[in-house]
Design a protein around this nucleic acid. Structure first.
Lengths: 341, 341
DNA sequence: CCGTTTATGCTAAGTTTGAGCATAATAGGG
DNA sequence: CCCTATTATGCTCAAACTTAGCATAAACGG
């Protein structure tokens, strides 16, 4: 059973692990993600911007996370605080380079939260609103326009394009449940499922880049909505980040990793709304937060908004001790919309 | 920046990925985990039983999960249904073999749920109750005895063993919050945190095996409670599984992956209690499940318990469509205990 | 000083949860 | 065949929590 190094190499047991981090920050009501500009000449096959990333060094890195921090520090200069491992992707052919003889990628995706104050973009970096890459995930101003007008018909075409009847039913069912059509509910955590569906349907630019599709006029139009391609599987990692973060704020106080030391309750609310992609009832949110004892007043006030000055609060560090799952339970506002496919 | 294959090998960028699966099943009120008996001669350095696992084959496996299924099928003959990736571990020296020149391990842990009916143990396999390996996690008959009598004093010794005062405070705080002592609450999901703490404190057999401790009389005693060592980092994966599963049943109907096609409500309750490690209020559980619409009656009854016959139910497949997070919200019973450290 | 804007307080009505009492339907023993 | 133990199921009450608004407070700009 045991193999020499040579043999194992030949049979493909050795791979390179790529560590990627999605750095998330919030500016006002905008959830931001850090992207490194596309620096490789287009001819080389690299497409789009990408997350900070680099290979895991088994000799020098004590842990995977240590390696990740090293790469991020090197590429962005941003010191990381909260870091969480998300998922390990090893699917074949997610990186178009692989078809041209590149190595088989196995990538470990991380989520890192960056406080607004630590935020400084240098030349090679962009902090872009994550809804630019996932416009259908933002429900703060009601059901996203492109959801029904563009994605629904495009997915309907994908459903109908299958030869088998049973397969068409499966596809339709899947589209309905992930996008909340025809009686199903929109679940704001299923970001990855929605992305994967669009990928399979060839409706995101990466799917075209991976060689299965030649982008025609119709898909070009759709790409305009689903956004420009990102490097490798980085948009998939981003989708994972969004879903995970949306789930996590509900039961762990991670939101405070994104807030400045002191903040008004409305700023806190806006930050949560930014991540969740939905709006909250202001008075109830305030009662919830106060009641949960997650924050405490500092006594100071802030007079920036033109209205009555808001009291400044800070996070109570010791809450973690007290209750098992101190998060911000999201009361949802009325008026979820749905459409037909 | 680019390196030839030779260079990258030298600098340690290529590693082997090990895929491991924790197969979970439930028998009555006992949550089971599948272990392969320790088959290597002790002299070789392998210690304890382990999870089914094997290296990822980048040439032949299309995805990581595919490789995992192949290994499990090969080693146990059990066909896997529900499979979920948990975490990727890459810490140095978690496997004692590594110190003796073995390869740097990077392992991707998976959770797989097996239906009782698919359960069949062959010679090399054991389905063991997971609380045998984590006795302090079972609160169904009240606070675990060994928690206060054995773990508390042992952890107190670990706290006091630090030379620095600030470090002692940090250690005490960490012990309190993860084990729910001194006013903190027991969180049944923090299985991994508790295991990691015991590992760091040298209180689990794996920590001794990794060479940092020579087990003396005292630790021998503790190992009797914390359980025999498992191979590599497999008990850590198991801890991750327990925590993840305890969290997941609350918001996704994964429990049904473990149940037979039809079941009584009390069987369902016992299954959930088995995973959660806590007891539920029977009448309220029934109301909850009925109200959530997760199950539907089959019309049949079961007369096995000696009391009134129980109606048999089945899972309603279509619930996933309807609501965003159909899980079994766990009402907790009174009487959480705590102790002093 | 007045209208506008944002922050904050408060309450009525509806829903969910925690706990326990009461009843129903079986088995087994006398 | 009746009585008791045992498990299943139905129901209710009070407490806690949510939802949705109304109402008031405290700033700003004319």
């Amino acid at each position: 059973m045991k193999m020499s190094k040579k043999q194992s190499l030949k049979s493909g047991f050795e791979v390179q692990i790529e560590l990627s981090a999605a750095l998330v920050a919030i500016e006002g009501d905008s959830p931001r993600i850090m992207l490194l500009r596309d620096q490789a000449p287009a001819a080389k096959g690299a497409v789009g911007a990408g997350l900070p990333s680099g290979p895991f060094d088994a000799v020098n890195d004590r842990t995977l996370e240590e390696g990740l921090r090293r790469w991020v520090a090197q590429q962005s200069g941003i010191p990381l605080g909260y870091v969480e491992q998300l998922y390990t992707f090893g699917d074949r052919f997610r990186d178009p380079l692989e078809r041209r003889g590149g190595p088989r990628p196995v990538s470990v995706g991380y989520l890192a939260l960056v406080r607004q104050s630590d935020l400084r973009a240098r030349d090679a970096e962009v902090w872009s609103d994550w809804y630019r890459h996932f416009p259908w995930e933002d429900w703060r101003t009601g059901p996203p326009a492109t959801l029904d007008s563009v994605l629904a018909p495009a997915l309907k075409a994908w459903v109908d394009s299958s030869g088998e009847r049973s397969d068409r039913i499966r596809r339709k069912d899947r589209a309905d449940t992930t996008f909340g059509w025809n009686g199903a509910t929109w679940d704001n955590e299923r970001v990855l499922e929605r992305y994967e569906l669009l990928y399979e349907a060839g409706l995101v630019a990466e799917a075209a880049a991976d060689g299965r599709f030649t982008p025609d006029e119709r898909t070009q139009l759709i790409f305009a909505i689903t956004g420009a391609a990102m490097m490798k599987d980085h948009r998939r990692i981003l989708a994972t980040v969004m879903g995970r973060l949306r789930g996590k704020i509900k039961y762990r106080p991670v939101i405070f990793e994104l807030m400045p030391p002191t903040f008004t309750l409305f700023q806190l609310q806006q930050a949560i709304e930014a991540l969740a992609g939905t709006l909250l009832h202001k008075q109830n949110f305030r009662r919830l937060v106060a009641h949960e004892g997650l924050v405490e007043p500092t006594g100071q006030v802030q007079t920036l908004t033109g209205g009555r000055p808001a009291e400044l609060f800070q996070f109570r560090r010791d809450v973690i001790r007290e209750r098992p799952a101190p998060g911000v339970r999201l009361p949802v506002r009325r008026g979820a919309g749905r459409s037909q496919l």
